[in-house]
Design a protein around this nucleic acid. Structure first.
Lengths: 218, 218
DNA sequence: GCCGAACCGTAACGTACGGTACGCTGTTGT
DNA sequence: ACAACAGCGTACCGTACGTTACGGTTCGGC
């Protein structure tokens, strides 16, 4: 559901075995958070620590490889093109919204974001940049063409696609991600996700839809 | 700008010296992130580690004390009451929005949130809950009366104040907080904050304002 | 059947850091 | 004046973990 990639090397440079090791690391990361140890990863993956270090350099290397591996796994449904009527535009937006909510509320996304945020302060690695690139920015890159198409078709009105995207992003995500990252229980049922997607889409169309005369854009 | 508090003990139970120590810890936390050491705090605060442990128990105790200390420092401007016209309502909302944006883009808020997010996984302490309580939930507790007043005055239309608040939250914050937490450079100038506050308020009023017939609420 | 490479399991090393103990000094109360 | 104490500085201990080293095993190629 995520990831525009095209910048990281990913799956083909990794052997099957290496992918399995990274999967193990990923699972452990979800369970243990940032306090996973190299020993634990080795044990979980049934490999030796020496191999870990040979393949990934050091702990940070393993972490970034794991994050990129996860990023490369989640491929995007291409959203196809332009069925330029309002209904299909709304459907596309709703799909984006629910996909996005599903991602940010998933265990692995929460774990990955936690680790990346934790590492963002001390500039040893750039996990934060990786997560950002495959999360928020990938989403923008995928959604903007849809918004532009909507504008071309006369369905949407906005001056700046980036600004329109960010508004949509805010309407969809609201306080969900920060609450989840901070440990708030907040189980998003499939029904709730669907409802939120519809609501966010309606609100977005109310603000940027062309049919209604509205002075929403700054 | 932040914090409804009324749940944590805060300033009066702390001596001047202890507050100074916590200030030092806070400054160090901003600089070093979660890898500050007890030794470093002791040195920065010109106190002994023994004192640190006597006062705060252990490292987690020091961290939570620091977070609560910061929370207790930021007091809220009471927003006073009801000048029930649209202009003053908009002004209140704008003030909330800009205050909030200033908070979440401040170095100390970023550092605190990073630490809290990092700790949220492994349930040793409840930093996440503390931050959440003094951040997102405190904001809601302060803002909801304003929204309710707006509804009473016939200026706003919504069925659920919580839901209206979350929409406002999303419109104001958008992707700012997660980007900052993940290390994205994104300096918010005072002008940008003001502009965003106005935009968010306008969008919120477009969605929930009573004067315009609109089917925005889910 | 043998060689080397890749890899597993584990032991060992070094270090950083949380936590504790101790000696010294300045202050306070009597 | 002196005892009691709070607190500073520092040395110290134990441990957890990142990193390295090493012996044993499997496997593909000759």
């Amino acid at each position: 559901m995520l990831q525009a990639n095209a910048d990281i090397d990913n799956s083909q440079t990794l052997t099957e075995r290496q992918q399995a090791v990274l999967d193990a690391a990923l699972r452990l990361l979800v369970e243990e958070g940032d306090n996973l140890t190299m020993t634990a990863v080795a044990r979980r993956a049934s490999c030796s620590k020496e191999t870990l270090y040979k393949w990934f350099g050091d702990r940070d290397g393993l972490l970034t490889a794991t994050v990129q591996w996860q990023a490369s796994k989640v491929r995007v449904a291409p959203v196809d093109g332009k069925g330029l009527d309002l209904a299909s535009l709304a459907a596309s937006l709703e799909r984006f919204a629910s996909d996005w909510l599903r991602v940010i509320s998933s265990d692995t996304s929460i774990a990955l974001n936690r680790v990346a945020v934790g590492h963002a302060g001390s500039g040893k690695d750039n996990l934060g940049a990786v997560v950002l690139e495959n999360g928020r920015f990938a989403l923008a890159k995928r959604l903007k063409p849809v918004l532009e198409a909507g504008r071309q078709a006369g369905l949407l009105e906005f001056s700046d696609a980036e600004m329109a995207f960010r508004t949509f992003f805010g309407l969809v995500g609201r306080d969900v991600q920060i609450r989840l990252l901070l440990g708030d229980r907040l189980e998003l049922t499939e029904a709730a996700i669907g409802g939120d997607a519809i609501r966010a889409t309606q609100q977005f169309l109310a603000l940027f839809g062309a049919t209604n005369g509205r002075k929403a854009s700054s």
